[in-house]
Simulated assay, not measured.
Amino acid sequence: MKKSNVLVSAPGKLMLFGEHAVLYGNPCIVTAVDQRVYVNVEKVGGESIKINAPELKIDNYSIKVSDLGGVDYPKEVKFVLKAIEVFFKKYKIVSGLKIDTKSDFSSLFGFGSSSAVTVCMVKALSKIFDIEVDNKSLFDICFKVVLEVQGVGSGFDIAAAVWGGTIYFVRGGKVIKPLKISRLPLVVGYTGIKADTTTLVQKVAKLYKSHEKKIGEIFASIRVIVEKAKIALENTDYLKLGELMDENQKLLEDLSISSIELGSLTKAARRAGALGAKLSGAGGGDCMVALANKSKTAKIREAIEKSGGVIIDVKFNTEGVRIEK
């Protein structure tokens, strides 16, 4: 049923296993977190698209539909506008729109806000223009948007935003398998350093080019860890899961994408009783995760803070994209 106005939300993500290796065809495991992006889209007369995004300091930005694809977009709303461009072109639509966004995200943390806003935008457009889009089609459209903006990507953050929950994923959506998990007893610590994902991805790519055998072996080892972690998660085997987190962290250190700060926080968490700890995401800073028994959670949180980290309180395994109204 067509709607002239729709509010959609989608979650952020936290990578659990398989960083960087996922870009080379290996699987990863990602979970949706309860920090969400909200996008309200209204169909209006004329052929102008107006965007308000207060958190990004975008106030009544306007562009004509005829200019989509022909001008450089402001970086703050690049994913929103590219999503509209791709959707309108695919379904041969011309329409005015009024768009308002808000977010639970801090721009500091790498929780995947660009992918979440892309998913919200495409989902909202499908409702407004009464076009049936299932989850896989939604993923495919959004993945195209992200590739056109960034030039590279695996799509795991899009999958988390679309399906929610905790997902076993292979690049480009070749495999998207939601895992049956009741809870994830994790503590998230922020290093205080915003990660530069593009630079880190390029760094690993250069390493792979110059040391293909060695880096290929690291990726193969990460792949084995991901497969074991999938089983451990489904069996609620937290002892095994913690061991695998530590193994994954060591391999990420071998890729030279950890940092002094990440190392400090993961070691502090382990000393305080964490079952395992690793960086989460591209590395270089940003966040780490520790697996915590309930009895040790407070000590682990305290240890991370004493080592200079900031605790990020989020819930995991949360709902995917949804229509709010």
Rank of each mutant, 00 (worst) to 15 (best):
V175A: 07
V187F: 07
D130L: 00
K136A: 08
K127C: 15
I141D: 02
V133N: 06
V133Q: 04
F143D: 01
G155K: 02
I176R: 00
V162A: 08
L186N: 08
S210F: 03
A161H: 06
G153H: 04
I193V: 13
K194A: 13
K144D: 14
V145T: 09
V187W: 08
W163V: 00
C142S: 13
K203S: 15
V152E: 13
T197P: 09
D134Y: 04
F139P: 03
F129L: 08
I176Q: 02
K213W: 11
Y190Q: 08
G151P: 07
V122C: 07
K209W: 06
K180N: 15
P185D: 07
C142M: 00
T198N: 14
M121F: 04
K213M: 12
K144N: 14
F139H: 02
I176A: 02
A160D: 03
H211D: 11
N135S: 11
K180Y: 14
A124T: 09
C142V: 00
E132H: 06
I176L: 02
C142T: 01
V122Y: 04
G192E: 06
E148F: 07
K174D: 12
S154L: 04
F139W: 00
L138F: 05
T198C: 05
A124Q: 11
D157N: 09
D157L: 04
V188N: 10
P185C: 01
V201F: 13
Y168N: 02
V188A: 09
G155I: 00
S182H: 15
G192P: 06
G189P: 07
K136R: 14
L147F: 04
Y190R: 08
W163F: 10
V152R: 15
S137D: 10
V122K: 04
V146W: 00
K123H: 10
V146I: 06
L207F: 13
I215E: 12
L207K: 06
V201W: 13
E217P: 10
K203A: 13
G189K: 03
F143S: 03
L184R: 00
K214P: 05
V188L: 11
F143Q: 05
G164M: 02
A161Y: 03
F139Y: 08
I167C: 02
D130E: 15
T199E: 15
K180R: 15
L147Y: 09
L186A: 07
L179Y: 02
R171N: 12
V175E: 15
Y190G: 06
V188W: 12
E212R: 08
L147C: 05
S137I: 02
K214M: 14
K136N: 11
K123Q: 10
V133F: 11
I193M: 06
A205G: 09
K180H: 14
K180A: 14
R183N: 12
V187D: 12
K206L: 14
V162H: 06
A195H: 12
L147D: 07
R171D: 01
S154V: 03
I167A: 02
T191S: 08
V149T: 13
V175D: 11
I128N: 12
V146G: 10
